[in-house]
Simulated assay, not measured.
Amino acid sequence: MQVYETTGFPNPARVRAALAYKGVLEQVEFTEVDVMAKAHRTPEFYRINPLGTVPVLRTSEGEYLSESTAITEYLDARFPQKNLTGESPLERGQIHMMQRRAEAMVMDAVGAYFHHATAGLGPELETNQCQEWGRIQEVTASRGFAYFNDVLAKHDYVAADRFSMADITLYFGLEFADFAGLEIPSTLSALAAWRERVKAILQSNG
């Protein structure tokens, strides 16, 4: 298997975390995509992912998968140890619901803020910016932080009362928020405590 990634970007980090958690990093070849040099906007890259985003996984079967959630689904089926996407019907539903909320309310909202309301990756890459949309998504992210703090005040993990891909997504969404300069209020103590727990899990499997 081969993963096309850009080091330091949040979505490739999600896939690396899933691979590390499952203990299969050594079974994957990693190929760096130089986004700053527009390597993701070449005809060659568009052939494997017409959206021009990272990560992309070339599977054991020789097919290409993009989207972190889809890649994690594949990895969970390919390496069933230490399940991340749910085992029972209820777990799968809960994890996928909260995974999507973590994306929409934090990861994607922070991304829209970063790419539209700040200099982002610079003028060569940040075309068609909309400051108003970025500011709207800044509010969405702030509400997302508070929402997940409320969830984590009652549960140890984001979904199904165990570590899952929803935790990975929220964790790297918060890391992205730090990078983008979005404040995560110190009053959100449940979110902060959960973040330390997940950090320890990821470090122990890194």
Rank of each mutant, 00 (worst) to 15 (best):
residue 32 E to G: 04
residue 34 D to A: 11
residue 168 I to N: 04
residue 109 A to S: 06
residue 23 G to L: 08
residue 114 F to W: 08
residue 68 S to G: 15
residue 62 G to D: 03
residue 70 A to Q: 08
residue 41 R to D: 13
residue 52 G to R: 04
residue 160 A to K: 02
residue 145 F to K: 06
residue 34 D to G: 07
residue 89 P to W: 06
residue 46 Y to D: 03
residue 86 G to A: 00
residue 202 L to A: 01
residue 184 I to K: 15
residue 156 D to G: 15
residue 191 L to D: 02
residue 190 A to Q: 09
residue 181 G to F: 09
residue 203 Q to C: 01
residue 13 A to H: 05
residue 179 F to H: 14
residue 119 A to V: 14
residue 84 L to S: 05
residue 121 L to F: 11
residue 135 R to D: 14
residue 82 K to Q: 08
residue 104 A to G: 11
residue 31 T to Q: 03
residue 117 A to M: 13
residue 119 A to D: 15
residue 100 R to F: 13
residue 75 L to D: 00
residue 55 P to G: 06
residue 129 Q to I: 12
residue 24 V to P: 03
residue 44 E to I: 07
residue 125 L to S: 14
residue 206 G to S: 13
residue 115 H to K: 11
residue 121 L to N: 07
residue 179 F to Y: 15
residue 72 T to S: 07
residue 127 T to Q: 15
residue 64 Y to L: 01
residue 124 E to V: 12
residue 29 E to M: 04
residue 50 P to W: 04
residue 37 A to C: 02
residue 83 N to D: 11
residue 176 F to R: 10
residue 117 A to R: 13
residue 136 I to W: 11
residue 172 F to H: 15
residue 152 L to N: 12
residue 35 V to Y: 10
residue 25 L to I: 13
residue 171 Y to E: 11
residue 138 E to K: 10
residue 176 F to G: 11
residue 66 S to N: 06
residue 1 M to G: 01
residue 66 S to V: 02
residue 21 Y to W: 10
residue 21 Y to S: 01
residue 83 N to T: 12
residue 104 A to S: 14
residue 4 Y to I: 00
